[in-house]
């Protein structure tokens, strides 16, 4: 759509030599709703929260003073870096556990001769549709040392709490990479695999030489979606461990840190300045990740037309 607009406008520009150049009306009409809504509800608040991070709570311009608090020597430094580290651990679990298993399930689901394909697909995708609160509550009960099946307080130890929560989230969202991979896999023409088989390739070799390269762009997209979603995560941790993300902040991620600083917690008074600062930091971290993906991966990966 954007591509088309650009070429069209370029054509109008070069073609209409005498006439004054103007954007065709239908382009404006079609773009307007999205542009207005995005600007109003996404772009404007985003820019405004970036702006807020440069001001104190009293509305005075303080430049980068708020941001400085996030770095060593600042008041927020230890909680911020702790949250960032935890957030990357949370992401690592999704990247190294959720996505490979999602791919494995998708590959299994596309095996010829599999019975009950639809049922498996629905069941595995099901948890994704559940409310996080329900998922958190059910798992909390399952893992409860009092009423549940596990004696060890997995959610209560600093060493195990974050991995446990990450795996809960993996359990819930595994359907998403699975669906993406599944859609790509069924799109791979049978002739390619047939030809490989004729050439004497085995199942494993076919996967690595044919299927995997064709999946690579999708793996990239899923990785970046996972990255953005995980860095913005909040709800599961909040519903299971509360805003203080215990024990000892071992499950504190950027989302919960932001919630505490912006909305406050028990006696802690919320602060727009600190909240906006944490939000800005989240934005920057996500932006860096997206840039790394765009320039480090997406531009280099070969996409095949099938």
């Amino acid at each position: 759509m954007t591509q088309k607009t650009v070429t069209e406008t370029v054509e109008t520009k070069t073609g209409g030599s005498a006439k004054r150049w103007r954007i065709p009306r239908h382009v404006i009409v079609f773009l307007a709703p999205a542009v207005i809504i995005y600007t109003l509800f996404m772009v404007y608040p985003l820019i405004d929260s970036l702006r807020l991070s440069l001001y104190s709570d009293e509305g005075l311009f303080v430049g980068l003073d708020n941001i400085r608090e996030l770095f060593p020597g600042g008041n927020l430094s230890s909680s911020f870096w702790n949250a960032l580290r935890n957030n990357f651990v949370f992401f690592a679990f999704h990247f190294f556990v959720q996505n490979p298993i999602g791919l494995l399930i998708a590959v299994l689901l596309t095996q010829p001769g599999l019975r009950g394909r639809g049922a498996y697909r629905t069941l595995i995708f099901g948890p994704t549709l559940l409310s996080v609160v329900i998922v958190g509550f059910i798992w909390q009960l399952i893992l409860s040392p009092l009423w549940g099946l596990v004696e060890t307080p997995l959610l209560g130890k600093t060493a195990t709490a974050l991995p446990t929560l990450s795996l809960m989230s993996v359990w819930q969202y595994i359907g998403i990479p699975m669906m993406f991979f599944y859609a790509t896999l069924v799109g791979i023409p049978e002739d390619l695999l047939e030809a490989a088989r004729v050439d004497g390739a085995t199942g494993w070799k076919i996967f690595w030489k044919i299927t995997f390269p064709l999946l690579l762009p999708m793996i990239g997209i899923i990785s970046i979606i996972t990255y953005i979603a995980n860095l913005n995560a909040f709800d599961l941790i909040y519903s299971v461990q509360g805003a203080l993300a215990g024990p000892e902040f071992s499950t504190d991620i950027m989302g919960t840190l932001f919630y505490r600083s912006f909305f406050g917690q028990q006696l802690q008074i919320g602060s727009t300045a600190v909240g906006a600062t944490v939000a800005t930091a989240m934005f920057v971290v996500i932006l860096i990740g997206v840039l790394v993906y765009l320039f480090g991966f997406q531009r280099r990966v070969t996409t095949y037309e099938l």
Binding site: L76, T158, L244, P247, F249, R260, Q265, L267, Q268
Partner: peptide, 29 residues
């Protein structure tokens, strides 16, 4: 004792008391 005046700043005394008391009972502090 943390309610009047002493929880006005960062790090917040009340939040710290929650975390610290839990850790003391957990035996990690």
């Amino acid at each position: 004792n943390s309610y009047q005046i002493l929880s006005r700043g960062e790090p917040n005394l009340e939040n710290e008391m929650w975390a610290v008391s839990a850790s003391v009972i957990n035996g990690t502090l």
